[in-house]
Amino acid sequence: MKVPQYKIHSVGLEEYRDYLNYVDILDSCKFYSIGKSGNFELRMLITRAKGDSGFKDLNLGFGVWNEEARDIDDGIETRNGDMQRILATVAKRALEFLSRYPEAEIFAKGSTASRTRLYQMEIGKIINEVPDGLRIEGLISQIGFVDFRKGINFDAFLLSAK
């Protein structure tokens, strides 16, 4: 992928004690958004429902890490001008996960409809640079998942290995 990415650092599960009561964390990392509004620690998790043993209903979440609350806040807008770089970093980590678990399917959706739309627009800008091994589908509520294409409004996304 030609879009620059941030350096990723793995994070141990001990950072997420409260999360472990209701989800299994399969992957966790952090990286830093650095831009015009400052430096923000971002965290990304790939999770599944507690006790589920499959790889078909995984969830990808990311956002700004709130150290005091020990929580990821997916509602903060950093406005650092680096959304493409953030999404490229998230895509890279998702692709690394999918290379280890090629049967996995990872669901992703913005915390609001407008954020999902923002992700869709940013994905559209870099869709031709997505690595060959990564498949991105978009959810159309009345139809289901279809291959991602520009010009279609999606409600969520599904990432999988091709």
Rank of each mutant, 00 (worst) to 15 (best):
D57P: 00
D82K: 13
E103V: 11
S10E: 10
S111I: 14
E41Q: 13
T116L: 11
I25H: 14
E129T: 11
F145G: 03
L87S: 01
Q142A: 12
T47F: 03
I76E: 02
Y101C: 14
R48A: 06
E96K: 10
V3P: 04
I143E: 09
A156R: 10
Y32T: 12
E15F: 08
M121H: 11
R149I: 07
S28R: 06
R79F: 12
D147M: 10
R149Q: 15
I34D: 08
T89C: 06
P131H: 07
L58F: 02
I76F: 04
N128H: 15
R149D: 05
R149N: 13
S10H: 11
S53L: 09
N66T: 02
L26P: 02
N39P: 01
L87H: 02
G54W: 01
K56S: 07
K150E: 10
T116Q: 09
R115S: 07
Y6I: 05
T116D: 13
I86F: 01
N80Q: 09
G110H: 03
V23C: 12
G151Q: 00
M121D: 12
S53Q: 10
L26R: 01
V23D: 08
N128A: 14
A94Y: 02
E105T: 11
G75V: 00
I8T: 07
G51T: 11
L45H: 13
G12T: 08
L118C: 05
K109L: 02
L13Q: 13
R79P: 01
R70A: 12
G35W: 04
L158Y: 05
F31T: 07
R149M: 11
E103G: 14
G51D: 06
D57Q: 11
S33E: 14
F154A: 03
G51Q: 09
I143N: 03
D74S: 11
G63A: 01
Q120P: 05
S28P: 09
L13R: 14
I46K: 10
T116R: 06
E15A: 13
D147P: 15
R117V: 06
A88D: 00
I46S: 04
L87E: 02
I76V: 15
D82M: 05
V64N: 00
I143L: 06
K36N: 09
S28I: 01
D74M: 03
G133F: 00
S141R: 15
L42C: 08
Y119C: 04
M1K: 13
A104Y: 05
H9V: 05
I106C: 13
L60Q: 01
